[in-house]
């Protein structure tokens, strides 16, 4: 692949920058330690030590990779509570927490996408909704989700709904918006001539929708879904912070409680890998669908 080389170059450059940044970020602590012990600290030793602190300000990349490895494969295969020894996923592993986040993300994404498409259909077909819904949809996205999430959880909990549903609703709250915007544009994309053609066939509203508007909107829908699924993941993580019942959000929060920067970074990367995977899957479905529709670009 001709894209491999440029991508690897950028990754290598970022890693180099990261390693360079690690030294000054963690140096102060090492110097203080050395001063307290009255020892000399040659520069070479300083550099080596900044790369391997227990609680660095900025962990080195290899520490994050090691933590990712230890809290996934090693934990599940050798840990007392791991999958190998106990038959179920360990609650200390990122696989377990990633799975918790993934299920809520998928449920929220499905709800958000469904609601987004329904709202878009309403906006396109109903004048009153056209005039009224969009400002509210935009307003909904201006409220910081971090402020709204605890309230959604409290309200739902008070009517007896807890667990995956509240997190999924927060995920849906973020992911419906790009779908509405994209689908409204997509459903309105047919030009006057294409609509006139349907009129000359005296086509029913249903036929115009399923045979013209919906196929026309597909490229718009997929562009929205890619944004929407990443937003759903962010929403789920935010929704996990106040609940503390597992998920990558919990790992992020507990890491920051106990100053476990390496754990925070590992959870961050797990979330990023998950998001990249999800967007990649949507992209693959997009390519296959559009290719089958003869619209691949």
């Amino acid at each position: 692949m001709s894209r491999t080389l440029p991508v690897l170059t950028v990754v290598a450059a970022l890693l180099a920058l990261w390693y360079l940044a690690v030294i000054p970020m963690n140096a102060q602590w090492e110097r203080d330690q050395a001063a307290r012990a009255g020892a000399d600290l040659p520069f070479g030793q300083l550099v080596a030590r900044t790369m391997n602190q227990d609680r660095p300000v900025l962990p080195a990349p290899h520490q994050v990779v090691a933590e990712l490895w230890n809290s996934t494969v090693i934990e599940e295969l050798t840990g007392r509570r791991g999958w190998w020894n106990s038959g179920s996923l360990s609650n200390r592993s990122l696989i377990y927490h990633g799975w918790v986040t993934l299920t809520a993300t998928m449920l929220g994404f499905a709800i958000g996408t469904g609601a987004g498409i329904l709202l878009a259909v309403g906006i396109v077909y109903n004048r009153a909704m056209d005039a009224s819904v969009m400002p509210w949809a935009i307003a909904s996205q201006t409220i910081p989700i971090i402020a709204l999430a605890p309230m959604i959880i409290v309200v739902l909990n008070s009517i007896g709904i807890s667990g995956v549903i509240p997190k999924a609703i927060i995920a849906a709250y973020l992911s419906f918006f790009p779908v509405v915007v994209g689908m409204v544009k997509g459903l309105r994309a047919p030009d006057a001539m294409q609509l006139d053609l349907m009129k000359t066939y005296s086509a029913s509203g249903g036929a115009v929708f399923f045979k013209l508007r919906l196929p026309t909107s597909m490229p718009y829908l997929f562009a929205s879904l890619k944004v929407g699924i990443a937003a759903a993941l962010v929403g789920t993580i935010v929704g996990e912070l106040p609940v503390q019942q597992g998920g990558l959000g919990v790992r992020l929060l507990s890491g920051s409680y106990y100053g476990q920067t390496v754990q925070i970074w590992a959870a961050l990367f797990a979330a990023a890998i998950l998001a990249a995977g999800l967007v990649g899957i949507v992209g693959t479905i997009e390519r296959r669908t559009l290719k089958r529709m003869g619209m691949a670009t």
Partner: peptide, 9 residues
């Protein structure tokens, strides 16, 4: 119509 207007999909 003036343009063929075939549905591309």
């Amino acid at each position: 119509f003036q343009a063929a207007g075939l549905y591309p999909w």
